[in-house]
Design a protein around this nucleic acid. Structure first.
Lengths: 335, 335
DNA sequence: CTGAAAGCGCTTACAG
DNA sequence: CTGAAAGCGCTTACAG
């Protein structure tokens, strides 16, 4: 079933059918109705590939997730992001092509994306400070939006969580509770969120006129096992609070504190970041920073559609706010 | 940059360039090399949409996940499945189009999928006994593979986990440990995995010549909160072991048992299903059944490619084995 | 082994 | 408001 056949059934030309399907205003009302009737009757759906080829727009958006960093896919961040993107695409009548860029295919992936003709633009969930994927995209001419800010390139558009502010608010909270040796377990410093959350930690100390004690800063790797072992290294330095840059690391840190015979929050206040589902189920429930992951996804979609339609617009940068989620692990109720 | 331009640069016809790109054997070796050299030099990639239109094959596979059931997306099953599918697609030089079918868009989604011309076939992760999406697909002529068996339609191909056998092995294990009142918290009985795991429970009792006690069977909803409340209902009936049809429900059940002042595994042995990441972190670590989710994804891809290339082959059904993961919560070490 | 030509199913100036 | 025609970038019989 194609345009030609519909045209025949309706007694108009292929062009007119096309106009009707595309809601072109220049069609006689009665013609339009006649065509629609047939279209619906035979359950006709135009071939999207042909449409894309002819019109130069496929209404398909690519979602690129570089898997290089780790098996981050077992944590809910990406699934939730995918959900946000997908649902915004549904709402905007777009389809989504998913590219999980495994390291061994990364080069091929990025080429495919840019030259496939299959997508009108891409949303890239890059996490690294200096991602070759982003580099390559920036050199091509496919519209794209980053989820996660880009630290240097001033010409890319992105949406990000306010990681710095979230961390800052959390550390300020811990200080306000009277903790004096607030340590932090950071994320990898080659990851933007890792760097930004550390910057927030420093800023909070600075806000209070406190000096950063390098002894109290240790770098984790965003895994539970990493959180555990790094917390063990931290314990002899006697922190009375720890801001952990991710919930999953916080769970590991919690175990390490327990295994050392210390109590949370009495002896060590603990706070995470992300507000993952397990955070509220942990024992004690984990104080953390909530980020608007779904909204990042849908915002990215809207930005991308806008960029596709206005390729020459200036780069947009949107930073979404976070929210403090205070539970038992920080000892707010001990005061 | 298109075929025509490459042809011009090489001094051959568009047809020949196309043959080279598609590894057609009927090309002179030296011509082939000359063309490849140029293709690489200008970093040419054929337009996939045009290719799909002309050849009738896009090398894009659809992955359809009906989101109707629940926000199942916060558990790692789907992400891991997506990963398996995506990585097998990469390995087979296919791209993947992701359709998260939200209930409100389900009808449109399925139409889009079938008529888009964008994909050569679909992998459908359906969970319901009687899914309208599967129904619709079965009536169309797009090749598709189900992840999760179909109970009635004998003409669809699928890959599934051996849910029945996994449950059966687990319950047999609990019985072997000397537990005499083995209860089960099932999944929703309109979901295939829910039904199959209950069937496995019954089979294990039957294998031992034991009668099923309906008092010891309660239906959960695959959520933690559900596991909690349903376990509360179960407690007065004094089970000494509970096979819970999913890890997330098992975590809820564990909390309910604790809150009632009972000990796991001493007073109640507990076992889950799925082997999710948090299962080994639970306290005590959860005995469970591991299913090969990644392999289901990659198997589905291979089956689909096969089906696309041999549309008339008989339906295939592949059931992958599970593995018992024995940890502390079942009390194996109490013996 | 190679090329000219038709065709995949659409869109969109162009002319009327 | 409508249609004939060119074109999007490929593939693939067909003829040689």
């Amino acid at each position: 079933m194609n345009l030609e056949e519909i045209a025949e059934l309706t007694g108009v030309s292929r062009s007119t059918v096309s106009r009707v399907i595309n809601n072109d205003p220049n069609v006689n009302e009665s013609t339009r109705e006649r065509v629609w009737a047939i279209v619906r009757q035979v359950n006709f759906h135009p071939n999207a590939a042909a449409r894309g080829l002819a019109a130069g727009r496929t209404r398909v958006l690519g979602l690129v997730i570089p898997m290089g960093v780790s098996a981050l896919f077992t944590d809910p961040y990406f699934p939730i992001l995918i959900q946000g993107v997908s649902s915004a695409c549904n709402a905007n009548d777009q389809s989504v092509m998913l590219w999980l860029a495994e390291p061994e295919y990364e080069r091929r992936t990025i080429r495919q994306i840019m030259h496939s003709g299959l997508i009108d633009g891409a949303i890239v969930a890059s996490m690294l400070m200096d991602d070759p994927v982003v580099q390559a995209l920036a050199e091509g001419d496919l519209p794209f939006i980053l989820v996660g800010r880009h630290p240097t390139n001033t010409r890319v558009s992105y949406v990000d969580t306010d990681n710095l502010d979230g961390a800052r608010k959390m550390v300020a909270h811990l200080l306000r509770l009277g903790r004096s040796r607030v340590a932090t377990i950071t994320g990898p410093q080659n990851m933007i969120a890792g760097a930004d959350r550390l910057a927030g930690y420093s800023a909070a100390l600075h806000d209070r006129g406190l000096a950063v004690d390098l002894e109290l800063i240790v770098e984790g790797d965003f895994t539970e096992a990493g959180g555990y072992s790094v917390m063990q290294r931290l314990l002899p330095r006697r922190p009375d609070a720890v801001f952990v840059a991710s919930d999953i690391m916080a769970v590991g840190a919690l175990r390490a504190i327990r295994d050392a015979g210390l109590r949370v929050p009495e002896e060590i206040a603990l706070a995470g970041f992300d507000d993952m589902p397990f955070a509220e189920r942990s024992e004690p429930p984990l104080t953390t920073v909530r980020q608007p992951t779904v909204r990042m996804g849908s915002t990215a979609v809207e930005m991308l559609i806008d960029l596709i339609e206005h390729p020459d617009s200036a780069p947009h940068r949107i930073i979404l706010p976070t929210e403090l989620v205070v539970r038992k692990s920080c000892g707010s109720d001990l005061q």
